[in-house]
């Protein structure tokens, strides 16, 4: 109970607005929920990779079966959606980065932009190395 007393005589009968469906009421909150939700897909993708590692430990046949399963249409759709979500998640991650850093004398957009540029550069490098190394 607050030690502050309302001066309104009728304050005892206040009305509290319900929270149900709060995140649908503002586009800002919808984007927040997509940001948080995209982490679930990230986790799912990480689990798929872990399964691959586990199958690899069981030998070449098991690993090939796992790779074959990845080629199914369902898996391709999952990976396409996953890619979009991971890209969005990375963007939001750098977007909020200035808020988690100590006070900086530089424009927060530079922190966000720098982070995104670094992520793009590393992704391109890895992709190039993979294509290079592919038979």
């Amino acid at each position: 109970m607050s030690r502050y007393r309302s001066t309104a005589k009728t304050a005892a009968r206040t009305y509290m607005q319900p929270m149900a469906g709060w995140w649908t009421k503002n586009p800002y909150f919808v984007r927040y929920m997509v940001r948080e939700g995209s982490a679930l897909l990230l986790t799912a993708y990480a689990l798929v990779l872990l399964v691959g590692l586990w199958r690899l430990s069981q030998g070449a046949a098991a690993f090939d079966a796992w790779r074959a399963a990845l080629a199914s249409p369902l898996s391709v759709v999952f990976h396409a959606v996953g890619l979009v979500m991971v890209v969005y998640h990375s963007y939001t991650w750098f977007d909020v980065m200035p808020k988690t850093a100590p006070d900086q004398p530089i424009d927060p957009k530079l922190i966000t932009g720098g982070g995104i540029a670094a992520a793009v550069a590393v992704s391109v490098l890895i992709l190039a190395a993979l294509l290079w190394g592919a038979p």
Binding site: S2, R3, Y4, S6, A8, T10, A11, Y15, M16, Q17
Partner: peptide
């Protein structure tokens, strides 16, 4: 997110605490 006392007036006591 605040209790409504009347019309557009809310109870701010929780914030004061």
């Amino acid at each position: 997110n605040f209790p409504i006392i009347r019309d557009l007036v809310i109870d701010q006591n929780d914030f004061l605490d």
